[in-house]
């Protein structure tokens, strides 16, 4: 009687708490991989950011490290910011990347917020040789 009462009460306690977590619960590796997939949808935009920067300096290369939060309720990437200590790139390029990824949405949403750090490495191809102007 005493033992059964205890188990009943434990079951009751557990069942009142568990319904708080009903969404997908990714492990860190899956969370990272899924977020990366979302970020990769902006590859073209980010390349454009870099190509624009290359018009100013054709030999520009560097790294941009970005931190952001994946909001658990919406899956939205928010609070996107550059990690200035680890970023080695012009501000205009960093800003362009922040704007490119900010607001992306992870689907399905996770039951937990994600605190993510991603980095982009930029490397320029050799410029094409100049053509002689036609006249």
């Amino acid at each position: 009687m005493r033992t059964s009462t205890i188990f009943s009460l434990l079951f009751l306690a557990a069942s009142t708490v568990v319904p708080g977590c009903t969404c997908v619960a990714r492990d860190a590796e899956t969370y990272k991989a899924d977020t990366r997939n979302v970020l990769e949808t902006r590859n073209r935009t980010i390349k454009d950011c870099y190509d624009v920067a290359l018009t100013t300096d054709p030999k520009l290369d560097g790294v941009v490290v970005v931190k952001f939060k994946v909001e658990k309720k919406t899956g939205k990437i928010i609070d996107t910011a550059v990690d200035p200590a680890r970023t080695k790139a012009p501000e205009s390029l960093s800003k362009c990347i922040v704007e490119a990824v900010d607001g992306l949405t992870l689907d399905p949403v996770d039951q937990r917020d994600g605190m993510a750090t991603f980095s982009w490495t930029f490397k320029a191809n050799e410029p094409k040789p100049a053509e002689e102007s036609a006249s």
Binding site: N43, K47, A53, T55, P58, R112, M115, T121, S133
Partner: peptide
Amino acid sequence: ACGPTVFEDATTLTVVGDPPPPPPKPKVV
């Protein structure tokens, strides 16, 4: 269980850019 998941991608996303070609060489007349 519901605390934030902290992760960092050690593999950087590599972006290879194409610098614009230099301005055409003026034709020597």
